[in-house]
């Protein structure tokens, strides 16, 4: 199985090539440069892997949540590439990608993935390691830090490992009672690995759409 994975939901831009279990990854932090660098990065990655796009069985992309423009870019590129070579697409959650990057071998451990959603809110979800990568325990949500803390207090599981940059953006410095993983950004590496584990989730390119989670983006005009 050969997969190409794209992740552009943050200031980081990364692409990964999964070839029969081996992984090649190119990544860089490049705010506002994604649109110029992404395709050249894919070109260089395929060259290094001595392969071509047509040899890929599917295209995976980080479908959000994250920067609206970033996840739309990943979706647009995934659609264009996949439609062009007549291959399916595998959309992967950026929160799942973060949890996957911070995974621990203990199957009983819960992973709380967080991203800064700005406007005093976080995107977050809870996962646990499973056969197909991750099992979603709590669906992707958008809340304030206070509401997330409230959820954790009432949650039917022990304090999770907290990963992703969202938590640190809002948690007070003195909060030491939590197990924190390094606050890494989503990477195409984990998008590729999760896509390989979720091969059955491939879809038609036209259905490869972003998942924004924040859906209220405009206020209706008041009708006089």
């Amino acid at each position: 199985m050969q997969l190409l994975a794209i992740e552009t939901s943050s200031d980081a831009c990364s692409v990964a090539l999964y070839q029969q279990g081996a992984l090649l990854v190119h990544e860089a932090i490049m705010p506002k440069q994604h649109s110029q660098q992404l395709l050249p990065m894919i070109d260089a990655l395929l060259a290094e892997g001595q392969t071509s796009l047509t040899a890929c069985d599917a295209i995976a992309f980080g479908r959000g949540p994250g920067s609206f423009t970033g996840v739309r870019m990943a979706a647009g590129v995934a659609q264009g590439l996949a439609f062009g070579v007549n291959r399916p697409v595998i959309p992967i959650s950026t929160l799942a990608a973060i949890a996957w990057q911070a995974r621990v071998t203990d199957l009983q451990t819960y992973l709380l993935a967080t991203l800064d959603a700005r406007m005093h809110e976080l995107y977050w979800a809870v996962y646990r390691l499973a056969a197909n990568g991750l099992e979603e325990i709590q669906a992707e949500s958008l809340t304030s830090y206070q509401d997330l803390r409230h959820f954790l207090k009432q949650a039917p599981f022990e304090s999770p490992v907290i990963c992703g940059p969202g938590w640190a953006a809002y948690a007070p410095k003195e909060e030491v009672c939590w197990q924190l993983a390094a606050p890494v950004l989503p990477s195409a590496r984990s998008i590729a690995e999760l896509a390989a584990l979720n091969w059955h989730q491939r879809i038609d390119p036209a259905d490869a759409l972003p998942r924004y989670v924040r859906d209220k983006v405009a206020v209706m005009a008041t009708i006089k």
Binding site: R72, G76, A78, G80, F83, G84
Partner: peptide, 19 residues
């Protein structure tokens, strides 16, 4: 609109790259 333009641009260039 930059976000709107980017949808068409990303898709078009990627399709051209693929083909």
């Amino acid at each position: 609109l930059s976000g709107a333009l980017l949808v068409g641009a990303a898709f078009a260039q990627s399709l051209a790259f693929a083909r």
